[in-house]
Amino acid sequence: MQHLPPGLDDPDYAAFAWARYRMIMRWMALATVVIVGGAVLLLDFVYGPLSWVAIAAAIGGFGGTVMLAAALMGLVFLSSGSGHDERVKDID
Rank of each mutant, 00 (worst) to 15 (best):
D85W: 07
G63P: 15
D90R: 13
R26K: 05
L72V: 11
P5K: 03
G81T: 01
L41Y: 12
G81S: 08
G64E: 04
P11N: 06
D92M: 05
T65L: 14
G63A: 08
D92C: 02
G7R: 01
R87F: 11
F16S: 02
A57L: 14
G7Q: 09
A58I: 06
D9S: 14
I35V: 12
F45N: 13
L4T: 01
G74T: 03
A69K: 08
P11D: 05
V76E: 00
V34K: 07
P49K: 13
L30V: 08
I55N: 00
A57P: 00
P5S: 03
A17E: 05
L30K: 08
K89V: 03
A70G: 08
A58L: 11
I59A: 15
V76P: 00
H84Q: 09
S51C: 08
A19S: 15
Y47P: 00
L4D: 03
R20E: 05
L78S: 02
D12F: 05
L78N: 00
V34Y: 05
R26I: 09
A71F: 07
M28L: 12
Y13C: 02
G74N: 03
S79T: 09
P5F: 03
Q2P: 14
D92S: 07
V88Y: 06
D9F: 02
R26A: 15
A15Y: 04
M67D: 10
D10I: 01
P49V: 11
A14Y: 02
M28E: 14
I59G: 07
I24K: 02
M73Y: 10
G38A: 13
L8K: 01
G61C: 07
F16P: 00
L50G: 11
L43P: 02
L43E: 11
G7I: 05
V88F: 13
A54K: 10
M23F: 14
M25D: 06
V53M: 14
S79R: 13
S80H: 13
W52T: 09
D12R: 10
H84D: 12
P6S: 11
Y13P: 01
V33S: 14
S82P: 02
W52R: 03
M23L: 12
I91N: 03
M25L: 15
I24E: 14
V40G: 10
R20L: 04
A15Q: 03
Y21E: 02
R20T: 09
Y13W: 04
G61A: 05
A71P: 00
P49T: 15
D12K: 05
L78V: 02
L68F: 10
T65V: 06
D10E: 07
A17N: 01
L41V: 10
G83T: 00
